[in-house]
Design a protein around this nucleic acid. Structure first.
Lengths: 207, 207
DNA sequence: AATGATTTTAAACACTTGTTTAAAACAAAT
DNA sequence: ATTTGTTTTAAACAAGTGTTTAAAATCATT
């Protein structure tokens, strides 16, 4: 009875790879089985169906995707430091898992009317305390008057999009993989400075 | 012989809708035929195969997607005005066609190793003259030292991502469709100010 | 070594897929 | 009205899909 967890984990790992890279609709049960080095029937023996297996993978990926964000929000840093750290963490995560944002957004779209329910992680988001913190920072004048929705949109957009649009941007500028890797590192400092300068404007004279 | 163009256009319109909303892998030939209100065989009578039909749709969509960007770059405005106008145009386009960026990026990813060749529009991008213009603006000190790759990344990310991540962001903040529509309008002014302030810093004292 | 449960496989099932065929419906021209 | 060519359809095809079945292989326990 020791083979159980081993093969079960092997299937999950294989399914995660296949689902994330090709998406639910563009891959087959047999493809997942082959990736895991076994029979199709065995996959269904452990997980009943392709859809059931997918739901499990989807939830863990969704969890990973949201976790780094949430963690930073729960730290004791100042709001400015939090934003800076959040960009670092996002970049760190996306460097390791560049296909996850696309995967999450695609599968959310595929099941928008029925099926998958949103992971609870999403609902816990509003209770991290940053929202009050940001409201106070805005009242005190420390931070610019930007609502939390736009704040999260700014950070998500500037962090995620460069990873999501890699192929397009590379083609657009005729860059190699290695060149784009360098670019994306350089780009992090740019968006960090841009966002922080915008949210926490420097009021010293310069001219 | 007058029915030809009519049905052909009907098929193309239906295919465009279906391909864009569900993606190539997640839709079937019969689904496209049904959307066009006709038989499956008729679709293949005009376009030979699902793949052939897709390639035609893909190219027109890709063309539309790139066109608004290119047009702005060819105007006679100042660089700062160009960036501002570009954001407006992008927003205008994305409001009308919010699913296109996701569609383009997904289908590029699906055919990254073989199959679809990149539309020529992408290759013409480097010859719009903005690149030299930006280089000069940077030398003169008018514009911050940001390479063209990061410049395009900034604009694309902040314009496209809010439309691509609509579902996620809405769920994250518990917003209705109408609320998000308002948010996205407000957000345009935010990113415009943020990007312009960053690229063309104001050097007047404030304290 | 034999038993019984668990794990794995090969084969089959019903169904959907993209595509093709051959016949029907239609239009235009004689 | 008949002929000719074009457009549309219903039906079929082979291949691939998710899923199930029943038998084989493996394991732990006696």
């Amino acid at each position: 009875m020791c083979k159980t967890s081993s093969t079960e984990e092997k299937i999950k790992a294989a399914a995660k790879r296949v689902f994330i890279t090709k998406g639910f609709s563009a891959c087959t049960s047999r493809e997942i089985a082959k990736e895991a080095g076994m029979n199709v029937a065995l996959v269904n023996y452990y997980f009943r169906s392709k859809n059931q297996l997918f739901l499990i993978i989807y939830q863990t990926v969704m969890h990973d995707f949201m976790l780094s964000m949430m963690e930073v929000f729960s730290t004791e840093l100042s709001l400015k430091e939090k934003v800076s750290l959040l960009i670092d963490r996002e970049y760190e995560f996306l460097t390791k898992h560049p296909e996850i944002p696309t995967f999450v957004l695609n599968e959310m779209a595929r099941n928008k009317d029925s099926g998958i329910q949103i992971h609870e992680t999403l609902n816990n988001f509003a209770q991290t305390g940053v929202f009050n913190e940001a409201a106070n920072a805005q009242k005190s004048g420390e931070m610019r008057q930007v609502d939390m929705v736009s704040l999260t949109m700014l950070i998500m957009a500037n962090c995620q999009h460069p990873f999501m649009a890699r192929l397009l941007t590379q083609q657009l500028h005729g860059m190699t993989d290695e060149e784009y890797n360098m670019q994306i590192i350089k780009h992090k400092e740019i968006i960090k400075e841009m966002i922080l300068n915008y949210l926490f404007p420097i009021k010293v004279s310069n001219e």
